[in-house]
Amino acid sequence: MNLFLETLIGGLLAGTMYSLVAIGFVLIYKASGVFNFAQGSILLFAALTFVTLLEQGLPFAAALAVTILILILGAILIERTVLRPLANRSPMTLFMATLGLSYVVEGAAQGLMGAQVHALDLGIEDVPIFIGDVLISQFDLVAAATAVALALVLALLFNNTRIGISLRAVADDTRAALSIGINLNRIWQIVWAVAGIVGLVAGMLWGARQGIQFSLSLVVLKALPVLIIGGFTSIGGAIVGGLIVGAAENLAETYVGPYIGGGITPWFPYFLAIAFLYIRPAGLFGERTLERV
C-alpha cells in the first residue's frame, strides 16, 4: 500500500511539471489558435538566459528580472516579424511558422550562450521527507506548489481583468474582437510574453532537476499527451492532464514495467492520449462550441 501511495504521489507531483509546460501551449493556443511548436525552444532559451546571467554573477532576482524583460522583448519581436505578417493565414501555415521559429530560437540560444550543460541550483534541497510513512521528494513538492500558484495567478488574470476578458473574447471570435476595437497585436504580444514567462518557470524547475541543456526543449513531447488529455484550451485541463499523465506513467512503470522490461514512461502517456482521443477528442476540459439546441 505504501508503495502504491508513494508511486501515486510521486507521479502526481512530477505531473505538475508537465502541467507547467502544457500551460504555455494552452495560452498561445487560446489566443491565436495555433499549436506553438516553439514553446520548447522558448523554454530552453528562457532557462539558458537565466542561468547564463546567474553565472555572470548577477543576483537571483536581477537575473530573473532581466530574463523576463528579454522574454517580453522577444514576444514583441515574434509578434511583429512572424505573427503579424502571417495573420489570417491558415492554422497550418502558422504551425509551420512556429516550427521554423523553434529552430531559430534554439539556434539563437545555443549560438549566443553555448551548447554545454549548465547546472542550476535553486536552493531547494532535494532531500526526501516523510509524510506519515510515505516518502516524498521535497523538490517535487516545491515544483507542485509553484505550478499551483502559477495556475491561480493566471486564472485571476484571465477571469476578471480587462486583458483576461479580451483574451477570451479573441479566443472566441477574432473578427468580432477586432470590430469593437480590441487590439489583437497587443493581445498576442502579451500572451506570448506570459507564455514565455511560464516557460521560464517550467525551464528553471526542469533545469534544476536535469541540468539546463539542449534536451530541455524536448519537454514539448511530454506536453503533447497532457494537452490531448486535458484539452488544448483550458489551463485547468493542463493541470489535470499533467496530473493524470504523471500518475499514470509512474504507476505503469512500477506495476506494469517489470513484466515488459521497463522503459514505459516515454510512450505510456501517448498510449493514454490515444485512448482519450477515442473517447473524448476535445480533451477533458477542452472547449466545445456553446450552442443552444
Partner: peptide, 11 residues
C-alpha cells in the same frame, strides 16, 4: 456588427 451576430459565446 457582423452578419450572424458573432457574440463571444463563452463569455
Amino acid at each position: 456588427v457582423l452578419e450572424g451576430r458573432h457574440v463571444f459565446g463563452h463569455l
